[in-house]
Structures are given as structure tokens and as C-alpha cells.
Nucleic acid binder design. Structure first.
Lengths: 178, 178
DNA sequence: TTATCCGGAATGAACGTTCATTCCTGAGGT
DNA sequence: ACCTCAGGAATGAACGTTCATTCCGGATAA
């Protein structure tokens, strides 16, 4: 993960990965059929980790706004605390591998999309959020969060608790029914 | 541009690019010193094109909101009309080449960032937009726009004029001082 | 003729993957 | 307690492929 997050898929040769792992080049292939599957499997693991982290203290009984703030702030904090994981996930999203995943997520079955989809669908039903397609609501929520997380990790800005909250609240202003 | 937009930098070999251009493999090097410079030069051209398109009908005398809607809608429309250019720009942004560009843009001198920076700075001075760092305002504005453009181009959603306007207005709701 | 430009085969570096070989461990026999 | 050995695991040199770049013979223009 470190190598791929820092250097990208195409600049992280299997030989280097093996070296960093302290094993021989061929040993990797006893555990992963090929590079693509290694990448996908690692993505799966990180995905589960993120989801578990977001679920901590998540209360489905609270208001839509409260739950959205919880998820948004949790996500931002997680990425700031785990910058390598964020960079890895970003790489994965901007790759052919990630395209298939996004397609699934956009059109119905999505691993952690479920969490947010449920929230937005409930928000639509109660007219708490703007009457827009789910895809657009996702974009309004995650677009800024990912961008801001990247800017923080690259050092363009320093996010503290206050700024995190302000940012997520601003996202909510974009989503909520005014 | 077509090849790189569709296949990515690493799957668009110079030989293919030459073929598509109808010239021999070696001929490219009479016009571009190497692949990296070709990529950078193309980015520069597209960048200027986008900026020119945004400037069409842009009136610096109108209100902040009006100008923001103009720029946001213009950008979305441009990307929808020129999906290959959008994909190319995205590739560039998510590459080592693009990192340097983002750094410049975030910390001061930015080619078309100027346009938006001026707008946001004026908005801050007049308290028309939330009192947040420029970086965050950028994220709130462009994060959703890029995400939504990508979703449209990948076919996850169909953006028409109405939806474009609604999306940009929702972005503005996130940015404006409530 | 001479100068300039073009093409595409040649080059060498880098990569993912394979495979013949070596190493290690622990069960079984003495 | 000691030795033997079978078999799973690890190794890293070697292979085939792909790619960016170079180079030189020939075409074109002056």
C-alpha cells in the first residue's frame, strides 16, 4: 500500500513491493495470482476498514443532518489520519479497476454506498434534501470532501477540527432543501 | 488526446499515437522532445481553450452569484460537450505531472485559477460567500462539478440544461453565506 | 548536388511472471 | 535424543513482452 500510494500503480513494480515486504520476487505469487488481484484485494480490505470506522457511533435514529455530519466528519478525519490509505483509494478510483466499482456503486449495489444511499433516500422521502438524482447528491457530498482531503494531504491547507466541521456543514448546505 | 483520454498515459504508447496521427514513430520526436513534454504541451492548449470558453459572455460587473453560475454552468457544459478533453484533463490532474500544477494553483499563481480566485476573494470581501479558506471554497465549487461531469461522461446520469443549473445552484448554496 | 525531413526498424531499459532450485520444518523411525 | 526425509514454501535468475527513444537509409525539396 505504501509503495502504490506514494508512487502509483505503474511506478510500483512487483520487485519493489516484494523487497519492501521482505520476501523474494516470486513469493508474492504464492499469495496473489497477479498484480491486478493484489491491488483489488488490498482495495477490498481498506474499503471494509473505512466502513467500519464510519459506523462507529453512527446512530440511525438521529436526524438526517446529524447523520450526514457524522459520516462526513468521520470520513474527513479518517483520511487525514490515514493519508496513505486515502491516496491508495484515490489511485484505485482513477484507474480502470475503479471504474467498474464506480459503475456498480452508481447503479445500485454498492458496498458502503448503501450507507449513504439509505441516508439520501430517506432524506428525499422526507424532503430534507434537494430533489435531485442520487448521483448528484453523492457528488455534492463527496466531491468537496475528497478534494479537501487531498489538498490537506498534499499540504495546501491545514484542516483542524473546526475547519472539518465547517466544510462538512457547507456540504450539507449544498445538499439540504433550502 | 483521444488515445490518452481513452486509454490513459500508460496505455497510449508513442507508436500508437504516431499511428493515429498518420506519421512514423520517429517523427513525433521532431516536434516533441519526449512524451512528457507532449503531454504537458497538450494540457497547456486545452487549458487555454477551456479558459477562453468560460470567458465568453462573462461580465465582471454582475453579482458574485450570477458570475459563479455563469462559470459553473459553462464549465459543466464544456466538459459535457468535450468529454475527451475532460477525461484528458482528469488524467493529467491525477498524475505526477498534475501535482506540480495543483501546487502552483493552490499557493498563488494559477492560470485560470485567477478567474475563480478573484471571484471568491471579492465574495469574501463582500461577505457574499462563507468565510473559509480559498482552498475550501474551490473544493466546494469544483469537487461536485468534476464528479458530476465524470458521472455524466461515464453514463451514470444524463445531465440536461435543467439538471446542470440545479447542480451549480446547489454548489452555490454550499458556498454562499447563509 | 546538397540540405532537410521523414519513417520505421533497431535498441536497450523496465516490467510482470515463471520455474528450476534451495531452504525449512516437523513427523517418523531408530 | 538423534537422524532422516518428505513436501510445502521461498527464492531470484531468466524469459518474453512492451515501451520510449534513437538512428540511419531514403525521399523530397532547393
Amino acid at each position: 500500500m505504501e509503495l502504490i500510494a506514494e508512487r502509483g500503480f505503474h511506478n510500483a513494480p512487483m520487485s519493489l513491493i516484494a523487497g519492501q515486504a521482505g520476501v523474494g520476487a516470486g513469493t508474492i505469487y504464492r499469495y496473489f495470482e497477479n498484480k491486478e488481484l493484489l491491488i483489488a484485494e488490498l482495495f477490498g480490505e481498506l474499503h471494509i476498514k473505512v466502513r467500519a470506522s464510519l459506523l462507529e457511533g453512527y446512530d440511525p435514529e438521529k436526524t438526517i443532518e446529524t447523520r450526514f455530519l457524522h459520516l462526513g466528519r468521520g470520513m474527513l478525519r479518517y483520511f487525514i489520519d490515514n493519508p496513505l490509505e486515502f491516496r491508495y483509494l484515490e489511485q484505485y478510483h482513477n484507474s480502470p479497476y475503479g471504474a467498474a466499482f464506480r459503475r456498480d456503486n452508481a447503479l445500485g449495489k454498492g458496498a458502503d454506498g448503501d450507507l449513504f444511499r439509505r441516508l439520501f433516500e430517506e432524506g428525499l422521502a422526507r424532503q430534507a434534501v434537494k430533489n435531485l438524482p442520487l448521483t448528484v447528491l453523492f457528488a455534492l457530498a463527496f466531491g468537496p470532501l475528497f478534494t479537501v482531503a487531498r489538498d490537506h494531504i498534499f499540504g495546501f491547507i491545514k484542516l483542524d477540527e473546526i475547519l472539518i466541521t465547517q466544510t462538512v456543514k457547507a456540504c450539507w448546505d449544498g445538499i439540504r432543501n433550502i
